[in-house]
Amino acid sequence: GKAERGPTAIEAIQKHKSAYLMAVGGAAYLVSKAIKTAKVVGFEDLGMEAIYEFDVVDMPVTVAVDAGGTSAHVTGPAEWSKRIASGEFKGIALETA
């Protein structure tokens, strides 16, 4: 994925029991090497925007939205806000520019 998904996309992911994946910037090469086979399963006329089925091994990605509709873009900031507010990181010095 390239960005977080809005409510409509998340509802579609949940409805179709799918998942939306994300990778850190610059990981495209590693992600591509993890794809062992690819098969177009829909909208072939759209080329690269078609729907593909991939066989992957050790793909370096994180689930951004799971089949239940839980988004890491929502849960992640909520969790880190809670942890920062708790004082858990008070002993860690921050570098300033």
Score class of each variant (00 low, 15 high):
G1D: 06
K2C: 09
K2W: 12
A3F: 15
G6N: 14
P7S: 07
A9Y: 04
E11A: 08
E11Y: 05
K17M: 04
A19K: 14
Y20A: 03
A23Q: 06
A23C: 13
G25C: 04
G25D: 12
A28Q: 13
A28N: 15
Y29N: 13
Y29I: 07
Y29L: 13
L30T: 04
V31E: 07
S32G: 15
S32E: 14
I35H: 13
K36F: 05
K36N: 15
A38R: 13
V40L: 09
V40R: 11
F43W: 07
E44D: 07
D45F: 00
L46N: 05
L46V: 02
L46G: 00
G47D: 02
M48C: 04
E49F: 02
Y52H: 00
V57E: 15
D58H: 03
V61Y: 00
V63F: 06
A64R: 01
A64C: 04
V65W: 01
G68H: 15
A72Y: 11
A72E: 09
A72S: 14
A72H: 06
H73A: 11
H73M: 08
V74I: 11
G76Y: 06
G76T: 03
E79N: 15
E79Y: 11
W80Y: 14
W80R: 10
W80C: 09
R83F: 01
S86G: 00
G87Y: 01
F89Y: 09
F89M: 00
K90W: 04
G91V: 03
I92L: 15
A93W: 11
E95D: 12
T96L: 15
